[in-house]
Design a protein around this nucleic acid. Structure first.
Lengths: 138, 138
DNA sequence: CCTTGCTTCTCCAGTCGCTAGAGATAGTAG
DNA sequence: CTACTATCTCTAGCGACTGGAGAAGCAAGG
């Protein structure tokens, strides 16, 4: 059985975050030692790594709730996992598209900067007048 | 002089957001009517559009504080505006890179899904074992 | 036995940029 | 005068943590 500090080290999830996950019910409450310290079974490391990995891929907590439930039930059909992954992919592609548009705009603004006074600055100028944008909507 | 609802319509910024901007000092406190309603001068529309535009490009409030200060002082050198824009650009490129890595990983996971049981699901499988990832760090 | 220093405990507040709601008042049209 | 709309203030909530205060447990050294 591991204390929380060791679990944090082995899973790569910080101690307060582990406690937070417990508080929102993403992790089950572990048993406690005589002195009220949390004690985790060895496979808690795997569970937490799973969660961390899913977070790194940007899955939201509620999605991870479902994903880790599925991971504990290998016999269930995986269509739900597939759906969640596709959903996440769609969100990512949307974000990338938005960021790419922002980047394009910013590059142009920066290129228009004369490095002189604000009055001639492409950056301030474009911000001041949306009509000078490439995209009507960002 | 415009009431807040009209300002909201003309600037594209919602009423509660306008009040929020005022509360954090991003917008100056407007004069009030006899009945305590906010009344804005016509150029408040331009100021708010500027802010909205900067937000659409992802600038943080503190950066916008500085940018709108600069916009009101055309004679100042614009190097600060330039710096803020470059900083924002760097953040965007970093985000895009991260998201692209996530996307790549997700596409691969989804491709590995057998559409059968969780036990053979690429999605759950990869989440479960970080070693199956393309990138050590996301 | 006592101290030192590390880990862990609980609880609460803060982050960012809004957004939503409650309940009260002002202004306008009929 | 009555509806109805617009606006007012204040408070709390979102998501996913993160940090701090202050107390208590625990192992090792003297």
């Amino acid at each position: 059985m591991l204390p929380i500090g060791l679990l944090a080290k082995q899973s790569g999830v910080k101690i307060p975050t582990i406690r937070y996950y417990e508080s929102i019910g993403l992790l089950p409450e572990p048993v406690r030692s005589d002195g009220n310290r949390r004690l985790y079974p060895p496979d808690a490391v795997r569970r937490l790594r799973f969660i961390r990995h899913a977070r790194e891929l940007g899955f939201e907590i509620d999605a991870i709730r479902e994903l880790s439930r599925l991971a504990e039930h290998p016999a269930e059909p995986c269509c739900e996992a597939d759906r969640l992954a596709r959903e996440r992919l769609a969100v990512i592609e949307d974000k990338i598209a938005r960021l790419a548009a922002q980047r394009e705009e910013l590059v142009r603004m920066i290129g228009d900067c004369t490095h002189g006074q604000v009055a001639e600055c492409g950056v301030i100028d474009v911000l001041d007048d949306h009509a000078k944008c490439l995209h009507k909507e960002h």
